[in-house]
Design a protein around this nucleic acid. Structure first.
Lengths: 211, 211
DNA sequence: ACCTGAACACCGTTCAAGT
DNA sequence: ACCTGAACACCGTTCAAGT
């Protein structure tokens, strides 16, 4: 699904795409990540083999496995999620962060889509046999989400909106709040759910943007 | 810190604790998890070495690494949890609220119990056909939880710890945070899960107990 | 600059063998 | 029943060597 996106994204590039190892590695990684199998891990050798490239070559283009995963997820998100206005200082920091957090929430959707989303997550990671492989796959996903939030908070810290040393803690905090909201969206909702969610998100952001 | 707790918890046990491999393994795991070093991982060999036990012996008592981690986290929570009454003004309001919220969290349990708990909720209220009856049944349960939190906040408001008019909003907020934590307890957990959860809960309570 | 593949130090799990 | 430690199949990273 996403592999074409990655290609398109680099359209105005050198010459023969299939001759470009970096491209092939990135495409292979995106393919593995967007595989139907939720538990698929992004191992060095799996990616290298799929891209028809040596381990050393992979490492040359992506010095660490984290850099590779980040690049692949970034490529996916760049296509799927509209960019957040985190640097638009004409808008209050509070509103920018709320809007950014909503881009994560919206990947889960609402109503029946939110329910399908949670059902799938619970099936894959809660009900399924708890293997180490599954755990690592899940933690990699969580990590990406938290890092995204950290990215926003770091940007806001650069504008003096919060202390830089609290970025990690507060990103985890916001991640938990988003998990709570996501779960609540899937569960039966009260009539005032939208208002409650809005207030909760604002309260969480208030707590985050404070010395 | 927690190592003694694990010992105490098994006080009425066999004979010589230091001769009990299972005890030593559990203690070693708890020590590593409650280590200050946030990067500490719970590897088989690290635990086995620390416990002065072979890898095989460790596997005999804890067939998978997950079971070991679950047992260690359970041991930690069993000690951390004891509830402080909300009206005991000799304890800081902050601590009283955290302790009270933990009593709700602990109804969900940890590890396999937390997973069974979430699986059951999702099955009953997310996957099941969304009837009005189901919705009302669920909202009644939620209401009960939120009302409990409101009760605590009202008590604290009476002591001047927060404005009375914000009690409803903030109870909803805390409910969302608890939902997030509950979900995270059921999903695969990182090695630093205990610390992260503690910080998140404190941050949420900080946000609540503020004008 | 780009690529190769062996080597290294890890990981969790399995298992024949001991007591 | 409890324990041992080697072996296995992985993992991510490093690096001398090629082109």
């Amino acid at each position: 699904v996403y592999r074409y996106a990655v290609l398109v994204q680099n359209e105005g590039m050198p010459t023969d795409v299939m001759r470009n190892a970096r491209q092939r590695i990135l495409i292979a990684a995106v393919e593995i990540l967007s595989d139907d199998n939720a538990a698929s891990r992004l191992s060095v050798r799996a990616v290298a083999t799929r891209a028809n490239v040596s381990v050393g070559s992979l490492r040359h283009h992506f010095p660490t496995q984290r850099m590779l995963r980040d690049a692949a997820l970034q490529a996916i998100y760049d296509v799927v999620v509209p960019a957040a206005p985190i640097d638009d200082t004409s808008i209050p920091a509070h509103d920018r962060l709320v809007a950014s957090l909503r881009t994560i929430l919206d990947t889960g959707g609402h109503a029946s889509r939110a329910r399908a989303s949670i059902a799938s997550i619970v099936e894959s990671f809660v009900i399924a046999e708890q293997t180490e492989e599954l755990r690592e796959a899940y933690l990699a996903i969580v990590d990406e989400g938290v890092r995204r939030i950290e990215g926003w908070l770091t940007a806001l810290a650069g504008q003096g909106e919060l202390p830089l040393e609290h970025v990690a803690d507060r990103a985890q905090f916001l991640d938990t709040v988003l998990n709570g909201i996501t779960l609540q969206r899937a569960l039966p909702v009260a009539d005032d759910a939208v208002r409650v969610e809005e207030r909760t998100l604002r309260l969480a952001v208030d707590a985050t943007l404070r010395p």
